[in-house]
Design a protein around this nucleic acid. Structure first.
Lengths: 120, 120
DNA sequence: TATCAACATAGACATTCGTCAAAGCAGGAG
DNA sequence: CTCCTGCTTTGACGAATGTCTATGTTGATA
């Protein structure tokens, strides 16, 4: 079995450089697709709760066992965490038996930046 | 019309007072449902483009005819604008033959505020 | 070795979503 | 009145989504 790279995840670097505030200019289709994927990742109550639990957890990271009590089964939690990872909002790292998740600040900043302009 | 709101259609007023930054505390289930509905509304490329076109349009408002060239049929545009309205992100007003949409700043501010904390 | 705990993956299923064509509605102009 | 334009609603369709159970994998411990 190959133990090389088991995570076919988006690289955060590729996602970051986006976008001007929404008030400044209308989005291109390509930018809209990229940004919509991030908003979509937070567009589910269970995912949003998981994300908020990671974000608010002591030390800025949490293992799955710390946050998995959100009312759905463990495989479903795993599935949602994978979605958040693929959207570039979370990163994960295995340490021993546990897998720790933490938020990717630059991606969050891009989303907040887009909205902040339009909210003035 | 009855205002009994058993349906998950959000009144803009009820949506505004939410929420602390994601780093501060984990969301309750009720708050997560409300906020996820807003993020979900921006989680589609067509809707995000429509929203950005309204937000960046001169005067802070736009009629449908100004923004409907996003690559889908006109009924689909109307459907997406309705979703954005139901999520509390846009308001609409009819003036003569045209319907004008504008962004709801307070709702945007709530979303940006949640993200800004976690992006630091 | 065997066994357990933490987490991920596979497959199936019902529900939701995005899209379109067609029809409906509201206002302005003739 | 009739006709047209701008926009919404309806109904249908395939595709995507969220959830579960069952199974797999990884690492620690005995």
């Amino acid at each position: 079995m190959s133990n090389a790279n088991v995570l076919p995840v988006l690289e955060p670097e590729a996602v970051v450089p986006c976008c001007p505030p929404l008030t400044a200019a209308s989005l291109s289709e390509a930018d809209a697709v990229r940004m919509a994927a991030m908003f979509k990742a937070l567009g589910d109550p269970v995912r949003l709760r998981l994300f908020s639990r990671v974000a608010s957890h002591e030390g800025g990271e949490a293992c799955v066992c710390d946050i998995q009590d959100v009312g759905v089964s463990q495989p479903t939690v795993s599935h949602h965490l994978k979605k958040l990872r693929e959207a570039g909002l979370l990163t994960s790292e295995r340490r021993g038996t546990w897998v720790y998740y933490r938020v990717e600040p630059s991606v969050l900043a891009a989303m907040a930046g887009m909205l902040a302009g339009a909210a003035r």
